[in-house]
Amino acid sequence: MIESLQKICKRELRRIFTIPAFYIVLFIIPPFLFCFYGLIYSKEKVLDLPVVIWDEDQSALSRELIFLLQQTESINFTHVVSDRKEMEKLINTGEAYGGIHFPEDMERDIKRTKAVTVGIFTNAASLVPSKLIYKDAMQVLLMANGGVILKKLTKKGVEKSTAMFLAQPIKLNTLPLFNPTYNYIKYLLPGLTSVTLQMVFLLIGVLVINYEKKTKTEKELRELSGFNVFAIIGGKFVAYFVPMIINYLILTILIFPLFGFGFEFLSFKFFFLLMLMLSACLALGMLVSALFDDIMFTTDVALFFSSPAFVFSGFTFPRWAMPWYDQYYAVLMPYTHFVDAYFKIGSMNLPLRYVTKEITILLAFIVFSFLLANVVYGSKMRRQQLKPAL
């Protein structure tokens, strides 16, 4: 059986590197998509978002606040307006992502200890830019608010140290972990590249057996294996570790360093986790290929199953906030468990023992799909062998 398995493995490797349907999908499309995704987010983070200023106060204080707001990373005042309607028009047409409004007599009211309301307008349809504008605007306005209180207290004769405490009784120390600069490329590129590989190996998996029918080589395959089902499924499965490793090296040695990563992904932890996920996808694809003979149908099944994986995985939106049926659907995808593990070992740099649960689930995907593919294809092969005798 070992000899048959080796023969099938060598044969499959030849097919991988000589049949366009295989080598284009495995070696040409992924690097192209990796670079395409990287170039989209090459600016790494959002800077200098166009913002509208509506200053009804026209005072020294409002001018100072405008200057401070302009110094932030995300706010860049590009339009000056004189009413709310004009501001909303600029935001609605996409010419600006937000607006700041200083009310009339703001400085005078502050000096008279009257409450003042400063307006921060954002386009929440663009979720990330609106949050960045709000965050930077609030930092400046809270600092200004503390400065106003401090000035009032010192004028009343309160000691400076006491006045500073009263102006800011609670100090807020914000420490963003794992991606402190809100870098788009460091957040999204690992996710987009891994979900691309997930789709590739699931798609290849559904072609592994069915493509033999299209090329009319199924009889040759069975004879080479000595009609050993395990040798056919196992030999083909083992052969695809070569393209898995090649794609891993392309990612970690070429793509990630090209877009500003170090070699932190060139590690056993990430390699092991990625191989498990891709193996699970391949085994699942092979099971679908064994179940159904029609190539178009199996390809549609693979695309239907893998296309929404990024959305359902929890990479950009927490799964616990999704409807219960979507949460169950997400659990059926190997990529979901890869993402859970990736956040721990890739983003947080935790040891592998923290992802024991995810590793176990991915191994279960591999074992279950592989064994069931053997049973289904073996049953189909036996039925076809008995047909002439009937």
Rank of each mutant, 00 (worst) to 15 (best):
I2S: 01
Q6T: 01
K7N: 09
K7W: 01
K10C: 06
L13E: 04
R14Y: 07
R14V: 11
R15V: 08
I16E: 00
F17H: 10
P20F: 05
A21S: 14
I24N: 03
V25Y: 01
L26S: 04
I28H: 09
P30G: 09
P30F: 09
L33P: 01
F36S: 04
F36T: 04
G38T: 06
I40P: 01
E44W: 08
E44C: 02
E44D: 13
K45I: 00
L47I: 14
P50H: 05
V52P: 00
D55N: 12
S62Q: 02
R63I: 00
L65P: 00
N76S: 15
V80K: 13
S82H: 15
K85G: 11
M87C: 06
M87E: 12
I91R: 03
A96D: 06
H101I: 08
F102D: 00
P103Q: 07
E104I: 10
D105T: 01
T113L: 14
A115R: 10
V116M: 05
T117D: 10
F121V: 09
A124Y: 04
L127G: 09
L132A: 07
L132W: 04
K135S: 13
A137H: 02
Q139S: 13
A144E: 04
A144P: 00
V148A: 06
I149L: 14
K152G: 07
K160E: 15
S161F: 12
M164G: 00
M164Q: 14
T174S: 11
L175S: 12
L175F: 08
Y187F: 15
T196Y: 06
G205V: 01
N210H: 03
K213V: 07
T215R: 10
K216S: 13
L221F: 05
I232D: 02
F237K: 08
Y240I: 03
F241L: 12
M244V: 06
M244S: 12
I245D: 01
I245W: 06
I245T: 14
N247P: 01
L251R: 01
P257K: 07
L258E: 03
F263Y: 14
F270S: 06
M275L: 15
L282G: 09
A283K: 11
L284Y: 11
L284Q: 10
V288M: 15
V288C: 07
A290Y: 04
F292W: 14
D293E: 15
D294M: 06
F297A: 10
F304N: 12
F304A: 15
F310Q: 02
F310A: 05
F312K: 00
S313F: 09
F315Q: 11
F315Y: 13
T316G: 14
F317I: 09
P318S: 09
A321Y: 09
W324I: 11
W324P: 02
Y325C: 05
Q327E: 08
Y328H: 05
V331I: 08
V331C: 04
V331Q: 07
M333K: 00
Y335D: 04
T336S: 14
T336V: 05
H337M: 03
A341N: 11
F343T: 00
I345Q: 11
G346L: 10
M348Y: 07
R353Q: 09
R353T: 02
Y354C: 08
V355A: 13
T356F: 13
K357M: 12
I361F: 11
I361K: 04
I366G: 06
V367L: 15
L372V: 11
N374G: 08
V376L: 05
Y377W: 10
Y377G: 00
Y377F: 13
M381E: 08
P388W: 13
L390R: 09
